[in-house]
């Protein structure tokens, strides 16, 4: 390594002249804006990703509730059958028992169907949970329409209480013909109440 020592000039005094400096500032500024833009893009990915999921059924995410009026005039396709299975999961932190009333129901696309999940809280204190639903196969998700679902709100179950959670749904007649079997999952997550 060279060890010549001489302090004739400050090393920070760049050789770039003032016009060059201005030139640098402009490009730097543009690049800094680009960096910020991509930083924002990172956050924008959250809603983008969610709408992408809804659109493609990635993760089996289904949409929000369907207005009752949407069903008016809808005809059930008696020629086709879709087997809808149900499964349930209780996440750690909740002491509930939670299971579907039916393991599966065979429905006609377009026919409004009612079923329910049974939930009970055998512990000695009230607990609050939020149900997250998903559907497999993912591409069936956007054809699974809910008129009534306990997954839209948090649910509080009192100690010792048992409850029937209603689910009213239909499978859209537009569902691809080759999807003949779908499984609906509900998972109850605990909601921490800050008291």
């Amino acid at each position: 390594m060279d060890r010549h020592v001489d302090s004739g000039r400050t090393p920070s005094a760049g050789p770039a002249g003032p016009t060059e400096g201005g030139h640098h500032r402009r490009v730097t500024f543009i690049l800094a804006v680009v960096v910020l833009g991509f930083f924002g893009f990172g956050f924008a990915l959250v809603p983008l990703y969610n709408s992408f999921c809804k659109l493609t059924g990635l993760n089996g995410k289904t949409g929000g509730p369907v207005e009752a009026s949407a069903v008016v005039g809808m005809k059930a396709d008696r020629a086709r059958e879709v087997k809808v299975g149900f499964t349930s999961t209780v996440m750690p932190g909740l002491n509930w028992r939670f299971k579907p009333l039916h393991n599966y129901i065979v429905v006609h696309p377009g026919a409004v169907t009612r079923t329910s999940y049974l939930v009970s809280n055998p512990s000695n204190h009230a607990e609050t949970g939020q149900a997250i639903m998903s559907v497999v196969p993912g591409r069936a998700a956007r054809y699974f329409k809910k008129l009534e679902c306990f997954c839209f709100h948090q649910e509080t179950i009192k100690a010792g209480e048992s409850r029937n959670m209603r689910l009213v749904f239909f499978v859209s007649p537009h569902i691809p013909k080759d999807v003949r079997s779908i499984i609906v999952s509900y998972a109850f997550f605990p909601v921490k109440k800050h008291t």
């Binding site: 995410k61 499964t87 996440m91 997250i132």
Partner: peptide, 8 residues
């Protein structure tokens, strides 16, 4: 296996 979302 993903917490909350079903896979098959």
């Amino acid at each position: 296996s993903i917490p909350g979302f079903l896979r098959e």
